[in-house]
Protein backbone atom coordinates (compact mmCIF):
# COMPACT_ATOMS: atom_id res chain seq x y z
CA UNK A 1 0.00 0.00 0.00
CA UNK A 2 1.47 3.36 -0.92
CA UNK A 3 1.80 6.30 1.42
CA UNK A 4 -1.05 8.20 -0.18
CA UNK A 5 -3.53 5.42 0.49
CA UNK A 6 -2.20 4.95 4.00
CA UNK A 7 -2.78 8.63 4.74
CA UNK A 8 -6.18 8.51 3.09
CA UNK A 9 -7.23 5.59 5.26
CA UNK A 10 -6.09 7.23 8.49
CA UNK A 11 -7.85 10.40 7.36
CA UNK A 12 -11.19 8.57 7.28
CA UNK A 13 -10.79 7.65 10.95
CA UNK A 14 -9.93 11.23 11.89
CA UNK A 15 -12.80 12.62 9.81
CA UNK A 16 -15.27 10.30 11.45
CA UNK A 17 -14.35 11.69 14.87
CA UNK A 18 -14.63 15.22 13.53
CA UNK A 19 -18.09 14.63 12.05
CA UNK A 20 -19.37 13.10 15.30
CA UNK A 21 -18.03 15.99 17.39
CA UNK A 22 -19.49 18.57 14.99
CA UNK A 23 -22.78 16.66 14.80
CA UNK A 24 -22.49 16.49 11.00
CA UNK A 25 -24.65 13.39 10.96
CA UNK A 26 -25.16 13.11 7.20
CA UNK A 27 -21.44 13.43 6.56
CA UNK A 28 -20.86 10.78 9.20
CA UNK A 29 -23.36 8.40 7.60
CA UNK A 30 -21.77 8.95 4.19
CA UNK A 31 -18.52 7.48 5.50
CA UNK A 32 -20.24 4.12 5.93
CA UNK A 33 -20.94 1.53 3.23
CA UNK A 34 -24.53 0.39 2.73
CA UNK A 35 -23.79 -2.99 4.33
CA UNK A 36 -21.54 -1.64 7.08
CA UNK A 37 -21.44 -3.15 10.55
CA UNK A 38 -20.90 -1.09 13.71
CA UNK A 39 -20.03 -3.37 16.60
CA UNK A 40 -19.39 -2.60 20.27
CA UNK A 41 -18.88 -5.92 22.09
CA UNK A 42 -19.47 -6.31 25.82
CA UNK A 43 -16.91 -7.85 28.14
CA UNK A 44 -17.59 -11.37 29.43
CA UNK A 45 -15.45 -10.75 32.52
CA UNK A 46 -12.48 -8.59 33.51
CA UNK A 47 -10.22 -9.96 30.78
CA UNK A 48 -12.28 -11.53 27.95
CA UNK A 49 -14.17 -9.62 25.31
CA UNK A 50 -17.28 -11.14 23.75
CA UNK A 51 -16.26 -12.27 20.28
CA UNK A 52 -19.40 -13.74 18.69
CA UNK A 53 -22.22 -11.23 18.27
CA UNK A 54 -24.62 -14.01 17.22
CA UNK A 55 -24.39 -15.85 20.53
CA UNK A 56 -22.98 -13.26 22.95
CA UNK A 57 -24.15 -9.84 24.04
CA UNK A 58 -22.93 -6.62 22.44
CA UNK A 59 -23.49 -3.05 23.60
CA UNK A 60 -24.38 -2.44 19.95
CA UNK A 61 -24.39 -4.59 16.87
CA UNK A 62 -25.81 -2.55 14.02
CA UNK A 63 -25.75 -4.44 10.75
CA UNK A 64 -26.44 -2.19 7.77
CA UNK A 65 -26.37 1.59 7.42
CA UNK A 66 -30.17 1.71 7.84
CA UNK A 67 -29.65 1.00 11.56
CA UNK A 68 -27.12 3.83 11.79
CA UNK A 69 -29.66 6.13 10.13
CA UNK A 70 -32.21 5.06 12.74
CA UNK A 71 -29.80 6.09 15.49
CA UNK A 72 -29.18 9.45 13.84
CA UNK A 73 -32.91 9.96 13.44
CA UNK A 74 -33.32 9.36 17.17
CA UNK A 75 -30.75 12.04 17.94
CA UNK A 76 -32.16 14.72 15.63
CA UNK A 77 -35.84 13.94 16.25
CA UNK A 78 -35.97 15.69 19.62
CA UNK A 79 -38.12 12.77 20.83
CA UNK A 80 -35.48 10.93 22.82
CA UNK A 81 -35.51 12.02 26.45
CA UNK A 82 -31.83 11.19 26.90
CA UNK A 83 -30.77 13.26 23.87
CA UNK A 84 -32.44 16.57 24.66
CA UNK A 85 -30.39 18.69 24.66
CA UNK A 86 -27.87 16.76 22.56
CA UNK A 87 -24.66 16.13 24.53
CA UNK A 88 -21.44 17.59 23.11
CA UNK A 89 -18.50 15.31 22.48
CA UNK A 90 -14.78 15.63 21.86
CA UNK A 91 -13.07 12.55 20.47
CA UNK A 92 -9.31 12.17 20.58
CA UNK A 93 -7.98 9.50 18.23
CA UNK A 94 -4.33 8.55 18.08
CA UNK A 95 -1.77 5.92 17.31
CA UNK A 96 -3.34 5.02 13.96
CA UNK A 97 -1.76 1.96 12.38
CA UNK A 98 -2.94 1.08 8.86
CA UNK A 99 -2.20 -2.16 7.09
CA UNK A 100 -3.42 -3.85 3.95
CA UNK A 101 -2.86 -7.26 2.40
CA UNK A 102 -4.29 -6.27 -1.00
CA UNK A 103 -2.40 -3.11 -1.90
CA UNK A 104 -5.00 -0.85 -0.34
CA UNK A 105 -8.21 -2.33 -1.77
CA UNK A 106 -9.18 -2.97 1.85
CA UNK A 107 -7.35 -1.42 4.78
CA UNK A 108 -7.53 -2.10 8.49
CA UNK A 109 -6.83 0.90 10.69
CA UNK A 110 -6.26 0.32 14.37
CA UNK A 111 -6.25 3.22 16.80
CA UNK A 112 -6.76 4.27 20.39
CA UNK A 113 -9.49 6.72 21.31
CA UNK A 114 -10.95 8.61 24.19
CA UNK A 115 -14.05 10.69 24.24
CA UNK A 116 -15.25 13.39 26.58
CA UNK A 117 -19.01 13.80 26.69
CA UNK A 118 -20.55 16.96 28.10
CA UNK A 119 -24.09 16.20 29.29
CA UNK A 120 -25.32 19.77 30.02
CA UNK A 121 -27.31 18.92 33.19
CA UNK A 122 -25.16 19.24 36.33
CA UNK A 123 -22.38 20.25 33.89
CA UNK A 124 -21.68 16.53 33.79
CA UNK A 125 -18.55 15.42 31.97
CA UNK A 126 -18.18 11.73 31.25
CA UNK A 127 -15.21 10.00 29.68
CA UNK A 128 -15.08 6.79 27.71
CA UNK A 129 -11.99 5.23 26.19
CA UNK A 130 -10.87 2.24 24.20
CA UNK A 131 -9.60 1.08 20.84
CA UNK A 132 -11.05 1.29 17.35
CA UNK A 133 -10.65 -1.20 14.56
CA UNK A 134 -11.85 0.15 11.22
CA UNK A 135 -12.10 -2.03 8.14
CA UNK A 136 -12.14 0.28 5.12
CA UNK A 137 -13.07 -0.63 1.60
CA UNK A 138 -11.96 1.22 -1.55
CA UNK A 139 -14.89 3.02 -3.18
CA UNK A 140 -13.91 5.11 -6.21
CA UNK A 141 -11.23 7.59 -5.13
CA UNK A 142 -11.90 7.22 -1.41
CA UNK A 143 -12.53 4.73 1.37
CA UNK A 144 -15.75 3.78 3.05
CA UNK A 145 -16.15 2.09 6.41
CA UNK A 146 -17.23 -1.53 5.91
CA UNK A 147 -16.90 -2.49 9.54
CA UNK A 148 -16.01 -0.74 12.75
CA UNK A 149 -15.36 -2.46 16.05
CA UNK A 150 -15.22 -0.33 19.17
CA UNK A 151 -13.58 -1.86 22.21
CA UNK A 152 -14.83 -0.05 25.28
CA UNK A 153 -12.38 -0.03 28.19
CA UNK A 154 -14.76 1.28 30.85
CA UNK A 155 -17.70 -1.08 30.46
CA UNK A 156 -19.59 -0.05 33.59
CA UNK A 157 -21.47 2.72 31.87
CA UNK A 158 -22.00 6.10 33.43
CA UNK A 159 -25.80 5.89 33.16
CA UNK A 160 -25.87 5.21 29.41
CA UNK A 161 -24.17 5.74 26.13
CA UNK A 162 -25.12 6.43 22.55
CA UNK A 163 -23.24 5.71 19.35
CA UNK A 164 -21.67 9.17 19.14
CA UNK A 165 -20.40 9.14 22.74
CA UNK A 166 -17.76 6.60 21.82
Amino acid sequence: MNLERRLQACDVVAREAQYLDQQRWQDWLALYAEDAVLWVPTWKNESELADDPMSELSFMYLEGRAFLEERVQRVVSGRAVSLVPIPRTAHIVGGCLAHSDDDGATVTVESAWSSHVHLHKDAGLVSYAGRYQHLLRRDGDDYRIARKKIILTNDVLVSKLDFFYI
Binding site: P41, T42, W43, K44, A50, S55, E56, L57, S58, F59, D122, D155, V156, L157, V158, S159, K160
Partner: peptide
Protein backbone atom coordinates in the same frame (compact mmCIF):
# COMPACT_ATOMS: atom_id res chain seq x y z
CA UNK B 1 -27.34 -15.96 31.02
CA UNK B 2 -25.97 -15.04 27.62
CA UNK B 3 -22.26 -14.17 27.91
CA UNK B 4 -21.52 -10.48 28.31
CA UNK B 5 -22.91 -7.91 30.71
CA UNK B 6 -24.35 -4.44 30.39
CA UNK B 7 -23.70 -2.83 33.75
CA UNK B 8 -24.15 0.80 34.66
CA UNK B 9 -24.71 3.23 37.48
CA UNK B 10 -27.22 6.04 37.60
CA UNK B 11 -27.61 9.18 39.70
Amino acid sequence: CIAGQGNFTFQ
